[in-house]
């Protein structure tokens, strides 16, 4: 198992349309006047400045891949049929973490308390997207190094709580990524604090031609 690598202060490019879509915007149907567009853009910019991303990743060998579970080299078993399919061609997995930190949540609560819920929901959606963009960045970053070694990352990744990867799998990733080093903790109900944090796993595959 390789050591954990930590990156911080990264400003990944995020997809504005995905933020809008999280908020229920429907292109061609939803109408925005100029004032609202400005509020939206200014608030998204504020989210960017309030989300100093901290990212981490670690390469882990895969010992065995069964139909519904994957056993990692140090003995951890991750369960999930979809995850197992994703990693079926891989001899190594990469575990990843992205956190937007606590400031954004403080600001969201502050806005809520002051009756500015509309801005709070925009910040909330933007922060979720920015934390996800951190994982996109990591996958591009790792992919560049792998490419020259005849390898690539699987196109998709799995995060606990999505598909058939149970939220309780969060505990395995949290432990292996030592998320406390990133200022992130896991509650008894497997929630990450700060809330705008996300863990994921992807596979490393060989490029054959």
């Amino acid at each position: 198992m390789e050591s954990i690598k930590v990156l911080q202060g990264i400003r990944p490019s995020y997809n504005r349309n995905l933020i809008l879509s999280r908020l229920g915007y429907k292109r061609g149907t939803t109408g925005l006047d100029e004032d609202f567009r400005k509020l939206l853009d200014d608030t998204i910019q504020r989210a960017v400045s309030l989300c100093p991303l901290v990212l981490a990743y670690r390469m882990v060998g895969i010992e065995a891949c069964a139909e519904n579970s994957v056993k990692l080299e140090e003995g951890t078993v991750l369960s999930g049929k979809g995850l197992s399919m994703l990693l079926s061609q891989s001899q190594q997995a990469v575990l990843m973490a992205s956190t937007a930190g606590p400031r954004i949540m403080e600001e969201i609560r502050n806005l809520m308390d002051n009756g500015r819920t509309s801005e709070a929901v925009i910040l909330d959606a933007a922060a979720s997207e920015i934390a996800d963009a951190g994982l996109d960045f990591l996958m591009d970053y790792i992919g560049t190094f792998l490419r020259r070694r005849g390898k690539a990352l699987t196109r998709h990744r799995f995060s606990p709580g999505y598909g058939d990867v149970g939220i309780e799998q969060q505990a395995h990733l949290a432990r292996l990524l030592e998320i406390d080093r990133l200022g992130v903790t896991l509650t008894e109900t497997y929630m990450l604090i700060p809330e705008k944090s996300v863990l994921a796993v992807a596979g490393i595959i060989e490029i054959t031609g």
Partner: peptide, 19 residues
Amino acid sequence: YEEKKYFLPQLIKGAEAMQ
């Protein structure tokens, strides 16, 4: 909002004004 001509922040903005 139901017709998706407004999205969530606009729905809430209306609610904030009403409040």
